[in-house]
Nucleic acid binder design. Sequence first.
DNA 1: CAGACTACTGACCGAACGGTAGAAAATCCA
DNA 2: TGGATTTTCTACCGTTCGGTCAGTAGTCTG
Lengths: 205, 205
Amino acid sequence: MPPDSTPARARATRPLTITERARRAQLIGVTIEVVARYGHAGTSLARIAEAAGISKAAVLYHFPTKDAVVQAAYASVLESLTEYVGAAVDARSGAAAVDAYVRSLVAYLRDHPAHTRMIVEGLGGATGSADSADQAGRREAVAGLVGAAKAAGEYRADVEPQITAVIINGAVDAIVSESLADPAFDTARAADELVTMLDRALAGK
Amino acid sequence: MPPDSTPARARATRPLTITERARRAQLIGVTIEVVARYGHAGTSLARIAEAAGISKAAVLYHFPTKDAVVQAAYASVLESLTEYVGAAVDARSGAAAVDAYVRSLVAYLRDHPAHTRMIVEGLGGATGSADSADQAGRREAVAGLVGAAKAAGEYRADVEPQITAVIINGAVDAIVSESLADPAFDTARAADELVTMLDRALAGK
DNA sequence: CAGACTACTGACCGAACGGTAGAAAATCCA
DNA sequence: TGGATTTTCTACCGTTCGGTCAGTAGTCTG
């Protein structure tokens, strides 16, 4: 009997049961689906519980609040995406790393529509995430890539990494959003086109 | 006594009173502010009414539903923006029109922060708008501009208008969003940078 | 001045929200 | 087997939501 007044797990990093892990994983999974389907505003505790086949109270037994569930789901998606893109980017350097960033991001999001919808929702949605911090981190990462390509002499000297990063991220996001709105949109071709444009615009002399 | 069961104005295009016009305009104005400040999810009928200094019922006297108020506000912003950008674009042709599109859009949104926040909110928000239709229209418009520049021989022959339009819109939106998150961000410089990049990437041989 | 119409209020409604309480299953361990 | 612990349930609470309703000042008109 630890002096743990909290009814929900959460406290003092107890070992975490098998059932606990399984339920958490399941709840995160269904929450991703629910947010992808109904949007942030349409994601209620009741809906998550129903999708998981348990009661609202059971959900709140595993997570302290509804927001905690959504945030965990969001973090899960972000981690998965970051790992995927990170692997692709780390395998190259210079301008090739920037190209890999564009292509892997588009590829990942094409292959994981639910994740994509959740992230797109989350970018606009207020509740769920560290939003602007995430975005700033992403910009810095890309700016780092651009800066490296510039330092390697592959990009022109007058390229401004921060601004370029904002533009690249915006272009990639637009390609992803477009493919969500119009499934017939050829994302791979669009990614190729973007890479070509970046090469012509940034490479050089 | 026309067979008009609807309590709210709305029906049969009656002349529309002075007070009516004034209240409508006021409600649209405060709704833009409220959405800009609290987001789509945080915009309740009560909040709109309070901001306008009248009761909820009074708001619903002038508009049939809450969504109608939000939609009217959204349409108002869109119309204003479209007019501004349209004027700038129509004054040029070819590649210069594309440049004007980028610059005027960034300029307008820099000068109207509340409008900007409402639009950015609206793009992600489910309730308010014809969202995807608006986006598609916007893409077509820009694709038309790109196509014209291409036909005029200012852009390379292998430029794909649709994909290019998606990329341009994404880049512009990213610049705008960035300036919202970081007021110190130099949007005019970013717009210049983007225009330069587009010139290098698309202009052609 | 009577009646109609405009513009509005406050009180209220049902539904949905996130979250809590207490008891009941299910499971584990001695 | 039996007591403790984990996991889940049903029932409920308070709040907020969009929206309705009956009534009422004020104004305009015949």
